[in-house]
Design a binder for these strands. Structure first.
Ligand SMILES: [Zn+2]
Ligand SMILES: [Zn+2]
Length: 937
DNA sequence: TACTCAGGGCCAGAC
DNA sequence: GTCTGGCCCTGAGTA
């Protein structure tokens, strides 16, 4: 049922129809890799909305005798009353916050004794979302049905953190993009479930109060199993009792039945009444009203409108209005239009519409980025805009005020500081991390920027003009952050640590001054791999950072945990009992070792940093090690500053320089000699782009299989050769993409030959087969090379000697899809954890494709390819234990590369004689006579 | 030679 | 018995 992609017009949003991983932008994936982060966000209304919603987590604090949990939820996406199910979720086994969108299994849910809700506007009165009572019964019975199709289980299956595990921190924005998309997908699917609940409640209330009927919806007719929800009114009160039944598979033969009863309060607070009157009158004074927060009473309906929906919780009372105009345009905002296939109805321009439901419920004013907004640190401050969202949207009263999102970009000017490469700092994490980001932004901009955390003035929020009319930074807005939130967060952290609370709760401005230079760039998540977090909190668990451990800054306990886990090989069998996605923080870090370990990995800890020989002391050199970073920095300094040798003596470090060479360290040839040399900075990545090659310049990692070690060695040969051949001087004039590709291939032919000739297995084939295989697979191999080494997410090839080819600028004619396709494959591969060992394996697998024409010993080739595949599979399984999707995605990516190469092959002509001559004599004949030309049509 | 850093090991305490 | 996390040891590299 999860694979259901039926997009029938179903009136009630259902959980599954929405899941299939299609964001709105997917219809134009071609743009995903060639845009800035802001543009990328704007491509998808869903992304944008999610972004808007999650940049300011609303804290829902549950206080019980056994629980003091902080739950971060998306306030603008989910009306408070919809937090009830979520609010109930944290339980003993899952202490701490529940990541957005992750429903812990029913078995772990527990009712809080009390519940309060804190937003940036202050503490919301409990009456707004009072939880009157809850009871829960559980019983385990033998499972007699097929797989549980319960929607809440889908929520877990769709756990974004599970996807996260597949995503390496590549240093580019891709990680964040992928992560965000995963979360958006997750969120959308969850939203459908919430809508079901919402619909049911609305329906119930509508009936109960004789309000205009909702469109009739037969939930049970859904192909997907809807939530098993029942509403009933509690006698002698306004409260509604909601019963939610769930089935959670516990094991193969057992299924856990859970029944949760929520009693929801629905007494309108007095304050709301006057507010509504005010609004109604304001609305009445205008001609073209499309919708408003009309009150719940049908008698107050305007003639031109039809009130269709009401809500249970008073402050969220709202109406969906059908106007003739909207109906004409088929853009009625109602349940129908908030369906999965059209979750965000795009509105006619100049329609000031107060959205009524679901995704649109909590939108913000739309603003266009203003380029002039640049902070002192060089980071532009951009209010995010989604052009499809219409011109303006009002703020729902009493919900969440407007806020700007800070986007930081790679700094191009030089600086003394090791300036981190920024991607959107707020996008990536919800929950605690967002909180941290929120704090950070608040701190760093306080007093300087009008980074408003306050709502727009009322008149602005009520009547919006076109987006360009709106000043995103009204000068009169107070920049003062909500003190409650800032302090509250600090306290909650402080209370968990053995630090004096006063340290933590001192005014943020002071803290900022004392710790961070004014111009210091905000540290984003990726940066703790380069420099310690500003708050000195372990990115994994929030504890105090004790130093740089295994590739990232982390606390002592996470360091110890990682070390122990590897040493004991426990990581091979770790499995999350909750299906992944457990929160890992100071309090909960001991709850789930699997998720903690995954978090360690995903945030940057390196398996390679653990010494197999267990040698103490010394310096390590693995990708991302402090030593390596230092060496790179020195190299860069030398390269950029002066040819005069530094006074520091440069040693050539070995992998683990301990004086003794572990026996496992020596294998294969070369011993990482000084030529292709260890510690030499990636030749291909010398200036821009991520330094993926760094790892390959170190000596062999002892833990890797022999084949991979040899492949890595051979890769060095290729890189060494390739850099010399990479010259674009003659390329300047070429405007044709194919021509450029051919040019590139011709220049890479000789390095490829030298590389291939040294490859294990391949070199044992007869030379004719070798030539044919190389000839047939050159394009796919080079494509993979480009993806691994030099393609950035903007579709540029970052080449040695600071050469950059912007592929997007080419007149690609019939290949206009090519670049976006390749960048999207690159995303896929990097997301799936394409590391150097995997990469070299894939190259070999590509080369050893047995279906190349005229190959004599195709069986032998096939056998070799299978061997390479096995090694590759093994590597992925070990590198990403428990991540079954990675393998599949890598193979899919490979297949996609082959298809592209095939397409290119059809458009090009090979001069086989030249290929053969190059191969046999290792001469660069291509410069005289090209190996490959593109077909001129 | 003292110091720093980032590995590893040890061990009391929690579970 | 296993796991945790604070503390200390170790040794390469640096000043
Ligand atoms: Zn930690
Ligand atoms: Zn877990």
């Amino acid at each position: 049922m999860t694979d259901k992609t039926d997009r029938d017009c179903t009136p009630v949003p259902s959980g599954d129809g929405h899941i299939p991983g299609k964001l709105g932008v997917d219809c134009a994936p071609s743009q995903s890799g060639t845009t800035s982060d802001i543009e990328w966000l704007q491509q998808s209304p869903e992304r944008y909305q999610f972004m808007q919603a999650t940049d300011s987590p609303l804290l829902l604090r549950l206080q019980g005798t056994q629980l003091t949990n902080t739950v971060a939820v998306a306030p603008r996406m989910i009306p408070p009353r919809m937090m009830y199910p979520r609010g109930l979720l944290p339980a003993i086994g899952h202490q701490g916050a529940v990541p957005l969108g992750v429903f812990p299994p029913a078995s772990t849910r527990q009712a809080p004794a009390s519940l309060s809700c804190i937003s940036r506007t202050g503490v919301l009165p409990a009456s707004h979302f009072a939880l009157d009572s809850i009871s829960s019964t559980q019983e385990a019975v033998p499972q007699h049905v097929g797989p549980s199709s319960h929607l809440l289980d889908h929520a877990r299956l769709q756990d974004p953190t599970a996807v996260k595990q597949e995503m390496p921190l590549t240093g580019s924005g891709q990680y964040y993009r992928s992560l965000l998309d995963a979360k958006v997908r997750m969120h959308l699917s969850e939203l459908c479930k919430i809508q079901q609940l919402q619909y049911l409640l609305d329906h119930h209330v509508a009936q109960q109060r004789s309000l205009p009927e909702l469109p009739v919806v037969d939930i049970s007719s859904e192909a997907q199993q809807p939530l098993d929800l029942n509403c009933s009114t509690v006698s002698n009160s306004n409260n509604i009792l909601v019963t939610l039944k769930e089935q959670t598979p516990e094991s193969q033969d057992r299924i856990l039945h859970t029944e949760t009863n929520l009693e929801l309060s629905c007494v309108p607070p007095a304050s709301l009444e006057s507010h509504q009157d005010q609004e109604t009158s304001e609305i009445d004074s205008e001609e073209e009203i499309t919708s408003s927060v009309l009150d719940m009473c049908p008698k107050k309906k305007r003639n031109t409108c039809t009130t269709e929906l009401v809500n249970v919780v008073p402050e969220l009372y709202k109406s969906v209005i059908r106007t003739p105009e909207l109906q004409q345009n088929n853009r009625v905002v109602s349940w129908e239009t908030t369906l999965p296939q059209n979750p965000l109805p795009s509105l006619p321009p100049d329609t000031s519409l107060r959205h009524s439901h679901s995704l649109n419920l909590l939108q913000q004013p739309i603003m266009k980025p203003q380029s002039g907004l640049v902070t002192q640190g060089g980071r532009p401050l951009l209010p995010l805009v989604h052009p499809d969202l219409g011109t303006s949207l009002a703020i729902e009263k009493g919900v969440v005020p407007e806020m700007y999102v800070e986007a930081s970009f790679r700094k191009t000017n030089s600086s003394d500081e090791d300036v981190p490469e920024h991607v959107l700092s707020l996008v990536a994490e919800v929950g605690c991390s967002s909180k941290r980001n929120l704090d950070t932004i608040t701190k760093s901009t306080s007093g300087k920027l009008h980074q408003s955390l306050n709502p727009l003035p009322r008149e602005k929020s009520m009547t919006m003009g076109s987006c360009s009319d709106i000043n995103p930074l009204p000068p009169d807005l107070s920049p003062v952050p909500n003190k409650d939130i800032v302090e509250d967060v600090s306290v909650s952290h402080a209370s968990l640590k053995n630090k004096p609370a006063s340290v933590e709760t001192k005014p943020v401005a002071q803290e900022e001054q004392s710790q961070v230079p004014e111009s210091k760039t905000i540290i984003t998540e990726l940066d703790f791999r380069k420099q310690p977090p500003v708050d000195n909190k372990c990115p994994i668990c929030g504890d105090r950072v004790s130093g740089y451990h295994y590739g990232m800054y982390s606390c002592e306990s996470c360091k110890g945990f990682f070390k122990r886990t590897i040493h004991s090989k426990r990581h091979e069998k770790l499995k999350c009992t909750f299906g992944g996605g457990c929160l890992v923080d100071l309090r909960s870090r001991k709850q789930c070792a699997a998720c903690r370990f995954q978090k360690c990995l995903s945030l940057g800890m390196k398996l390679e940093a653990i010494r197999r020989d267990r040698q103490r002391g010394g310096r390590s050199l693995y990708e991302g090690s402090s030593e390596q970073r230092r060496l790179i920095k020195i190299k860069e300094e030398q390269a950029t500053q002066s040819p005069v040798p530094k006074k520091r003596k440069q040693r050539q470090p070995s992998n683990h320089v301990t004086g003794k060479i572990s026996s496992t360290c020596s294998s294969s040839t070369g011993n990482g000699g000084s030529k292709a040399g260890p510690s030499s900075v990636s030749p291909c990545m010398s200036e821009p782009g991520p330094s993926r090659l760094a790892v390959k310049t170190e000596p062999k990692s002892p833990g890797l299989p022999q084949l991979i070690q040899e492949l890595v060695e051979q890769e060095k040969v290729f890189i060494h050769q390739s850099v010399g051949e990479c010259c674009l001087s003659t390329l300047r004039e070429e405007k044709n993409l194919l021509e450029t590709i051919c040019h590139f291939v011709n220049h890479q032919m000789l390095p490829l030959v030298k590389w291939a000739k040294g490859l294990p297995m391949y070199r044992q084939l007869v030379i004719e087969d070798q030539i044919r295989l190389l000839h047939k697979n050159v394009l796919s191999i080079l494509c993979l090379n480009a993806i691994f080494y030099c393609l950035d997410h903007a579709g540029r090839l970052l080449l040695p000697k600071n050469q950059v080819i912007d592929l997007t600028t080419f007149n690609a004619a019939k290949f206009h899809q090519l670049v976006p396709k390749v960048t999207s494959i690159a995303d896929q591969l990097h997301t799936a954890g394409l590391d150097l060992p995997a990469f070299v394996c894939l190259k070999l697998i590509l080369l050893l494709s047995p279906d190349a024409p005229m190959v004599q010993s195709s069986e032998q080739v096939q056998a070799y390819q299978e061997t390479a595949q096995e090694v590759f599979f093994d590597h992925i399984t070990h590198a990403q234990p428990g991540n079954s999707r990675a393998l599949g995605n890598l193979m899919l990516g490979l297949a996609a590369i082959e298809r592209i190469a095939q397409q290119l092959n059809q458009e090009t002509v090979w001069d086989v004689a030249v290929v053969e001559r190059t191969f046999r004599h290792e001469e660069d004949v291509c410069s005289d006579r090209p190996c490959i030309r593109y077909r001129v049509l």
